[in-house]
Simulated scan of single mutants.
Amino acid sequence: MRVIDFRSDTLTQPTVEMRQAMLNAELGDDVYGEDPTINKLEEMGAKLVGKEAALFVPSGTMGNQLAVLCHTQRGDEIILEERSHIYNYEAGGIAFLSGVQPRIVKGDNGIMSAGDVEKAIVTDKDIHHPQTGLICIENTHNMAGGIVVPLEAMEEIYELGRKYSLPIHLDGARVFNASTALGCDVRDITKYCDSIMFCLSKGLCAPVGSILAGSKDFIDKARRYRKMLGGGMRQAGILAAAGIIALTDMIQRLSEDHGNAKLLAKGLKYIEGIHISMDTVQSNIVMVDISSPKYSSYSLVDKLKEKGILASDINSSRIRFVTHKYISKDDIEHTISVFKEILQ
């Protein structure tokens, strides 16, 4: 049976070119700083996002958690958007590892306003109050549906950081989707943060790994914490080789995924029992709200699976679809026809 997998862009497979590069990668011991392929990837990643230094980490979650560890002290409070990945989907790591607590800000489709962020900053020195230690932004915002945070919003929050001497960390797991959607250089986004994590997997198709970037002192500290958390790998250049291909060859094709997401949304929005806000289809994620009397999102996901189409139920009335390199226009058209068959 034909299977079309929209559950996540984490399901992408490394390309033939990546596999060949991995086979031929020059290797060393990265814990000793002697893996030339890792060193090349880290230098490339830092330059790409306009930071002094970078660190290869096994996952985006580890990259985010290292950032919180490096920027904060135990007992601090950090500001996060209410649906952010760091707050909702990293297993409580900020509490367990860093000993910090979240101060949640409700965003407009995931976008925090500078005014709301400023209200959340603790400005007194009352010993009863936790002190604000960090502001985190997510761009694109996953659970808001791939929403792109505008440069103006990034800049305004960054200026708050300067005003209150607070670092800004960017969870940029899909930051290249954001720069593609905005039609700008990624450094136009990353200049408004002190540190950034971005994924080499997901839309960029590398099998494993993310990059954490920031100042040299920040990365030196993060490297020590990475070792402490068990993330110090040895001949990791075999993974970095795929990451280099991801950064050199895969960013420019993300616009195809965005186009396919819009094609899917346009094809589904007029089907009875479905609602899609086209304003929110900005990158490679489509949130589909179900109002059919026949199906909840859970039962519809099960029905789609029977037809070979895999998607993620977010709650009882919402399904998430994520486009990626291995979703074609023909797959989109087939998916639309299956929806019509089920719901009409």
Results as ranks from 00 to 15, higher is better:
residue 140 T to Y: 01
residue 179 S to I: 10
residue 43 E to A: 15
residue 86 I to K: 02
residue 45 G to P: 03
residue 147 I to Y: 06
residue 296 S to V: 04
residue 2 R to D: 06
residue 160 L to G: 00
residue 267 G to I: 08
residue 69 L to R: 15
residue 176 F to Y: 14
residue 338 V to H: 05
residue 302 D to K: 14
residue 75 G to D: 04
residue 267 G to L: 10
residue 30 D to A: 15
residue 12 T to S: 13
residue 300 L to D: 05
residue 18 M to T: 08
residue 41 L to Y: 10
residue 290 I to C: 03
residue 233 M to C: 01
residue 3 V to Q: 04
residue 59 S to A: 14
residue 271 I to C: 11
residue 277 S to H: 08
residue 252 Q to N: 12
residue 60 G to K: 00
residue 60 G to H: 03
residue 314 I to Y: 09
residue 295 Y to Q: 03
residue 224 R to N: 06
residue 278 M to T: 09
residue 285 I to S: 05
residue 304 L to T: 08
residue 157 I to S: 03
residue 165 S to H: 12
residue 83 R to V: 09
residue 309 I to S: 03
residue 331 D to K: 02
residue 134 L to T: 04
residue 320 R to S: 11
residue 101 Q to P: 00
residue 178 A to H: 09
residue 176 F to A: 00
residue 117 V to G: 02
residue 229 L to Y: 14
residue 60 G to I: 02
residue 183 G to N: 10
residue 256 E to A: 11
residue 287 M to N: 05
residue 102 P to Q: 08
residue 276 I to N: 07
residue 309 I to W: 04
residue 278 M to K: 07
residue 307 K to M: 08
residue 54 A to V: 13
residue 247 L to V: 06
residue 249 D to M: 00
residue 132 T to F: 06
residue 20 Q to I: 12
residue 195 S to H: 05
residue 294 K to N: 13
residue 69 L to D: 11
residue 274 I to R: 15
residue 64 N to F: 05
residue 220 D to R: 14
residue 114 A to G: 10
residue 225 Y to A: 07
residue 195 S to Q: 03
residue 19 R to H: 02
residue 320 R to T: 01
residue 38 I to F: 02
residue 159 E to N: 10
residue 265 A to E: 11
residue 204 L to V: 02
residue 275 H to E: 12
residue 133 G to D: 01
residue 25 A to L: 03
residue 339 F to V: 12
residue 315 N to G: 07
residue 180 T to G: 07
residue 62 M to G: 05
residue 9 D to C: 14
residue 10 T to I: 04
residue 127 I to R: 12
residue 11 L to H: 12
residue 77 E to N: 05
residue 136 C to A: 13
residue 152 E to G: 00
residue 264 L to H: 03
residue 285 I to E: 06
residue 188 D to F: 03
residue 277 S to L: 13
residue 260 N to I: 13
residue 111 I to G: 03
